[in-house]
Every structure is written in structure tokens, then in C-alpha cells.
Design a protein around this nucleic acid. Structure first.
Lengths: 214, 214, 214, 214
DNA sequence: GATGAATGAGGATTCATTCAT
DNA sequence: TATGAATGAATCCTCATTCAT
């Protein structure tokens, strides 16, 4: 966790530094990220960096936590749009998870990239440090509960667990986001097409990849 | 591309070197891969390495190509199982793509890991070098054609392109493989459960994540 | 020399700071001593440190001076035990020098360690700064005079100068102290053995290392 | 221990590097020694240094071992001068130890300084690494045996152990050497005075510091 | 006087790549 | 062709010292 000295900084400076660090990971990945570039980008001295953070891993874990939290907020927002009715049905739930994840990825490409990089760390000590306790965030607890019950009631395909459920949604999510990002540079995809594409992922989650109208 | 000197080596030595390089990427990821470790593992001199390859990227691109080719073979095999009838229907096709990819990942975990690492490189010069021309492999040409036609006939969900179609299959594939690999150490999953899980991915591709029997 | 600001501090705070600095040198040696650790240990701010002292060397010189002065006091005390008779003979004198030094080292291990560290600095600018003027302390003036006269009267081995005389006593002293300190942890040496050992150094100074009874 | 790559170097280069490292320690002490200065002084690349040695400590341990060995040789030489008679008496033995140590210090001032620096490390892991096994050198085994027997026969002052015996000789030795080195710059001490001074230490070891003719 | 954030030169160490043998 | 020593820029990180508050 960042040291107190970091949190004592003026908000603007904190943001500047985090932005530089986030940018660094999103571009070079966690493994090739460089303190030197971060401090140059943030306009601070090398020594300062180490007065704010224990080491490189420290900032990254912090950024990871922010990413998880932020994505959680996006998902929560989407959930709230539907929660007018007390009971939330599975389809609405999946839609909220998916849409939240999608908006998060599209509106925060750098966080999305960083998160992708972190996921590569699987099985490392840092990965555990990063995601330890994360599942105990408000929203994630709720998700766990909801999906867990659905699994028990047999509302989901045989074999799906809570973990796998989320991974599948995230997987489709990621695929669509990557595709959209890749498409952007060459022609700025029309609003319509974008909308179609977003719905596509959701549709696949709900009905499979085939067009069953056929 | 590896230099001629590499291909002139005895088959066994070539394999030894590639195996070492593959192992290195699969363990440390492309970014942290080290020439030093590779040559030590392969039992060759540092200098020799540079007589076989332009540089580190060179081996990696080569390995990437092998991975793509190998995966293509797995998919082809699956296709051939169904191709008894001249006409192949969409469901059989999807099943073949999916099963091929799944078997590839499970039987060649190191290639799978390496490939995951390469996918992280998106937008880099190396990524382009790696995947340039790949789509012109025999099987991939055929896939392109088949899917292309299906898209035009509207057999797939609105908005799906050839590229996206493959990415989606690969995405689900990857999610399932990761899940299986992660599950292994803690309890050796029964044959049955494994089978169920494999089918699950396929089912999702075909019918969505919900249990529509409900 | 410490700045006035230092001497204006409450006695207790001065002591706290000096104690921290002394501890630091005694543990890490002059070369690896760290301002950071000192201020943390003393419970003051980094900036304060530089309001009290010119720099790190400044505290150290100060501590060195205190060590010299303190050791002088121990020697003086021992001298006074014998000075009942106006005339002090050479043997009594040597005994006093030796015993004073020994007690100083054993009762103030940290000062002893620090002093050892300082002696390593020979030929450096700091060393000169440290020991410049030291010989003009009350007791040292007297010693100089006494030994000087003894040298002139030929009461000491040919070739001995005042400086060498003191260095030799200190040398034996140090050897014995180091030996005692090293012996402590493994078995708590009996009072008797300790006494024997202390006398041993003195005996060597007076009669050589051999047992001349033989 | 230095790596093979180091010992494979041309003798001249090995010497150049060791000389640079030795010089570095003798001037700055072990604690402030800098790889950068060493490589610059030796005229090699930073990277090369780490192809020869594990790390800084590695060279230093090596140099320490050389110092111990070299000093042993000096003592052995002196012993051999006397060993015409089969039996060697205690006085001749002490003289040999003392003279050997003295010549070593005077003819190899840098090794002497380095050794002084190493002795400061007492109680550190490096110290143990440095001196582990050293006592098992040919000459030191012999010394141990000889002194051990003398102690048992009561030929030495009550309370002296083998370890203490050597420390005392070394202590006097060091004092004299330091004094001589300090005296040099201001006037190059006459051959005679130097001789006198050397004998002085020996005399003290044998008969104490007083002139007992008086 | 007191504080503690800011600084940046300097520390050890790594590693892809070259090159002489 | 095979070798492995040589290179040096780049890595992360430390720490005495300054300075604005």
C-alpha cells in the first residue's frame, strides 16, 4: 500500500502520478514497466517515488485495486438501472455484468490494458497480493451470493461455478472490447455498428453464437 | 525468421533449442524471457544463439508461427472427423473449431501459455510481425472462406465478422482452458467433470450461457 | 561542531539524539551510518538534524571528542587512586592508563565500538578533524608531559615516543577488550577469569608475553 | 569464490583487477568500496566484473583469503630461518610470528589496510564467510598446535589461549606498523630508527614495555 | 525551531548483443 | 560453426542534504 506521504499529496499530484503509472503499465505491461519513465512522465524525482511507494509493485497493486473497484462501480451502476423491481432476473443480471464491464473497458482503456497485464501474472506472489481480499468488495460479495444461488437452483448451464461464470462474462467482454479498440483507428465505426457490436456479446452470452432465427 | 544455420542443425538440436525457448516464454512470459536462461537450458553457447536467430524476437516469432500452425492442425483434425459428408453445417464447424482449440491448449500447455503471452503484445511492432501472413495458412484460408460465406448468408449473429467469430471461439476456449488448468492442482477433476466442462464451452457458443431448459 | 541550536535544546533531547547517533555508529560503523536511522531512533525530524549539525560528520566528530574526553576521565580516576604519594612511578602510571582504558571499554561498549570505527579513518580529512586538538585536553597534556620526561630519562624502551607509548597501551587494551566481549556470549566467563584476563594485559605491558617464572 | 571466467583470464588481467579491488578497499574500506571505481581503475566493463565475481563481497572474500595466505607465508619464511635446529623455542617462535607479520604489513600496505577493514566486520555474515576454514591453512594448523602445547605446558602467561596469543601478537604488530606508516611521510625515518622500532615491538612482547635494565 | 517532502547523484546489478578466437 | 568473454546502457533503489511551510 502506498505510504502516507503519498496520500498527503495534493489530489492533483496524486492523480498525476497514478496516471503516469497507469499509462506506463498499459503501454509496456507490468513486466517491462520502468520507474524511470514513470517519474519522468509524472514530473517528480526518482527519490520522491520511493517516498510515496514501497517499490514498483506497490503502485501496481494499488492501481490493480482501483481497477477492480472501478469496474465494480460500473457493474453496480448497471445493476441499479434494473433494480426498480425488487427481484432481478438472470437475464437482467447478466446484461448488467456485461454492460458494466464493457463500459468500463471502453471508457478506461488504460485500466483495461493494465488489468489484462495483471491477469498475466497468475500464479505469482504479486498476483495473490493484488487480488487478495478483492472478492470481499461490497458488490463482489453480492454477485457471489446471487450467482451462487442461481447455480444451486440450476439456472445456469451444468458445470458452471461462480468463478467460471464471471470468467466467461469477462472473457466475452474482453474479446468484444479488444475488437472494438482494434477497429477504432481505421475509421471510427458508426454509432450504430458500435451499438450492434455491444449487443452482440450480450446476445452470445444469452443465446449462443448462432443466429437461431434461422 | 531463424537463419539457415539453424535449419542446418541436426533435428534433435533444433528441437532442444526450441523447447528451451518455448519453456522460457511459457514460464516467464515474453517480456521477461531471458536469452541467458534459454542457452543454458538448451546447452548451447550464447554466441551460437545469435548465429541461429537474428535476436530474441526472432525465436519468439518462430515459436508463435509454430503455435498457430499446430493449433490449425488440431482444428483440421476435428474438421476431418465430420467431413464424411461433403457439406459441413455450422454447428459441426463451430464444434470442430472449439474442440480443436481446446485439445491444443490442454495437450500443449506451454504453447498455449506462450500464445497468451504473445496476445498481450497487441499494437506492437512484434505483434504484427508475428501474425502477419498467418491468415494465409492452408486451414485458415479455408476457415476464412467458410465463415465469410456464412456471414454473408446471415447464418451468424448480426455484426459478426470472420475475425470476430474466431476471436470469440478462442476467447471461450481460453477461458475454459484456464479454468481447467487452475482446477487441476486442487483435486484432479474427474474425467466426467472434465468432459462436462469441455462441452459447456461449446454449449455456450451454441446456445448461450443460460440453461434454456428452465 | 554542533550548532548553537543543538546546545540550546533541553538536556534530555540532546542526550536522546547523541545516544541515537552513538548507537548508530557502534552498530553500523561510521561508514554505513545513516541519518535516516538516527532521526527515526531519536524521534526527531530529518530537517531538525540539519539544524543541529552541519552534517553527518559533525555529529560524529562530536561523539569522537566525547569518547576521548570520557576515556581521559577514566584514566584520570585511576591515576588519582595512586596519587596519594606525590611521586608516581612508571609502573603505577602504566597500570592506571591500562586500567582506565579497560574500564572505559567495558563500561561503554558503544563508545568503544565507535572509537574503533573512527580509528579506521586514518589519513582522511575527517580523522584529522576528529583528533585535532585532542591532545590538548587537561589529562592528555599531563600524560604527555609525564611520558615525555620518562622517555628523556630513558625509563622506557629505546625508540618509544609519547605517541607510540599511548598507542601500545591502547593496542593491548583493545585486544583484551575485544577478546572479553567476544567471550561473553558463549558462557559468561567467571569473575575470576575476567580478573585474570584483565591483569594479563597489564602483565604483558610490564613483563612481556612469556612466563618468565619458567 | 570468483567464477571460472575470472581464473581463465590472462594472469596480467587478473592481477590488474585484484590490484584495483585491493586498492579500493585499502583506501575506502570495505563498506564504502565501489564497483564503479574498481572497474574504472581496472579498465574493464561493469558487466565484466559480474562475469568474474558473484558480487562485491565475492572479490573481497577472495582478497581476504589472499591476505591471510600471504601473511602466513611471511610467517613461515621467518620460521624457516630459525628452524635449523629441530626444536624451536618459544622466543624464536614469537620472533618469527612478529617479524613475519611486520614485514607483511610493511611490504603490503594495501593488504594490511584491507585486512584491518575486514576485521571491522566482526559478527557479520561476511566475516564468517571470509574467515571460515582459514584456520585450516597449513601454517595456521601448525601454529595452533605449537601454541596449544605451549599453553598446556604453562610456558605462557596464565589465561592466554591460542586465539588470544595470536591476537596479542597481531595487536602489537598492528600498532607498530601503523606508527611506522604514519611516520614515513614526514621524513623517511632512517634505516636504523626503523630497525630499532621493529625490535621494540618484539622486545615488548618478550619483556614488557618497561626498560628492565633500569 | 520544527517539520517532512523533494531532490538527484550515486549505489549494485542485469542482460541482450557483439566479436575475437 | 562454436564459443564465451566483453560491453555498457538500463534496471531498481538509497540516502545525505536542502528548503518551503
Amino acid at each position: 500500500m502506498p505510504k502516507d506521504t503519498f496520500f498527503n499529496l495534493k489530489e492533483e499530484k496524486q492523480q498525476r502520478i497514478l496516471k503516469a503509472a497507469l499509462h506506463e503499465i498499459s503501454v509496456h505491461g507490468y513486466n517491462k514497466a520502468s520507474v524511470t519513465r514513470i517519474v519522468k512522465d509524472a514530473g517528480i524525482a526518482t527519490g520522491s517515488f520511493y517516498q510515496y511507494f514501497e517499490d514498483l509493485a506497490d503502485v501496481f497493486v494499488h492501481i490493480g485495486h482501483r481497477a477492480v473497484k472501478l469496474k465494480g462501480q460500473y457493474m453496480q451502476q448497471e445493476l441499479e438501472k434494473t433494480r426498480s423491481s425488487k427481484q432481478i432476473d438472470m437475464e437482467s443480471f447478466i446484461r448488467a455484468m456485461y454492460r458494466g464491464g464493457l463500459r468500463f473497458g471502453l471508457e478506461h482503456e488504460e485500466y483495461f490494458r493494465a488489468a489484462q497485464s495483471f491477469l498475466q501474472l497468475k500464479d505469482t506472489e504479486l498476483y495473490n497480493r493484488m487480488f487478495a481480499g478483492v472478492e470481499f468488495n461490497e458488490i463482489y460479495i453480492w454477485i457471489n451470493q446471487f450467482v451462487g444461488e442461481a447455480v444451486q437452483r440450476g439456472e445456469l448451464q451444468q458445470g458452471i461455478t461462480v468463478a467460471l461464470f464471471l470468467q466467461l462474462i469477462t472473457g466475452i467482454n474482453t474479446t468484444i472490447i479488444e475488437y472494438l479498440i482494434a477497429a477504432k483507428p481505421g475509421g471510427e465505426m458508426s454509432k450504430e455498428d458500435l451499438e450492434t457490436l455491444c449487443d452482440l456479446g450480450l446476445h452470445i452470452l444469452l443465446h449462443g453464437i448462432r443466429n437461431s432465427d434461422n
